[in-house]
Write a protein that binds this DNA or RNA. Structure first.
Lengths: 152, 152
DNA sequence: GCTTGACCTTCCCACCGTGGAAAGGTTGAT
DNA sequence: ATCAACCTTTCCACGGTGGGAAGGTCAAGC
């Protein structure tokens, strides 16, 4: 490796810098290390953690996976798949599709809540009087006839 | 109605029975009491908590509000509005509409995740080869820094 | 009586993901 | 030498829920 302009065996970042450039807070970087999601960082003589470009790259990967709503556990798998050059794209796709299903399930249950609440809020006259279908519904005994609430 | 309405002065439930009929676990009933969401339960001579019909009714109210996705804080407000006979239906409606907005925001962000992931999963051939647009996307730097080409 | 087992009590620990804060050490610049 | 900005570890909190330990209570059976 006699390359002159070489990226200098990757610059070292402190945790604060790594946080800045990766978008993961210093707090969370330490946490990820503690739970074994990322390897233990190297240390300076003064016991400061140091990070290189590839560490930062990993952190960005994790960060982006978080914005996609993957759990820590799923991310651990994703990271190891990412690192494993002999992975199959099928395994990654499977994980993604499973996560999509989870997301859709969550979306549906939230939508059901919205439907119910919207109906109730619409039925509520919303003035100074105390009568309120929303409270009446919440107070209703289970088993009472309900209108819509269930998709389909 | 001058006659006695109750054949028995409101049956008393143990926490386990109250949990059964309200759908709130005994664990959570104690928790709700601890955080002041419900008043401290009465006790028997043997220090057991006792609950009456109205307590159970409140628990069911809380339970139903949970299934609608209201937070504990919102539920605390709802319960007090429910108890307060001079509330305005407008205040309840406002709370509900705010919650609906929160739910919709959450739904939208989940839907964005689904969209992104679905696109990526569709673009992934999903076979034994390691090439995978999903990982490539997660690894992609937001700024630029496209150092480590993952098979361009 | 006494034992058994189901129930209750309190208390502490865990999860996930994140942030806050205390109390101290290191670094780099003045 | 001092000061500010950074780093270190450790503990605590949130929302909500569950698990379990160690002990008390109660109703039933023998």
């Amino acid at each position: 490796m006699a390359s002159m302009k070489a990226p200098a065996a990757s610059p070292r970042y402190t945790i604060g810098r790594a946080a800045e450039v990766s978008g993961v807070s210093a707090k969370m970087i330490r946490h990820y290390e503690a739970i074994g999601l990322i390897p233990k960082a190297g240390r300076t003589a003064g016991n400061y953690r140091t990070y290189g470009d590839n560490d930062v790259h990993t952190l960005r990967f994790i960060q982006r996976a978080r914005t996609m709503g993957f759990s820590m556990k799923q991310i651990a798998t994703l990271v190891s798949l990412w690192r494993n050059r002999s992975r199959s794209s099928a395994s990654v796709q499977r994980l993604a599709r499973e996560h999509i299903k989870e997301l859709q399930t969550k979306i549906e249950s939230l939508q059901a809540m919205v439907r119910t609440l919207s109906d109730l809020a619409d039925a509520c006259h919303g003035d100074a009087r105390p009568d309120c279908p929303i409270l009446e519904d919440l107070a209703r005994a289970p088993g009472t006839t309900r209108r819509q609430e269930q998709r389909g």
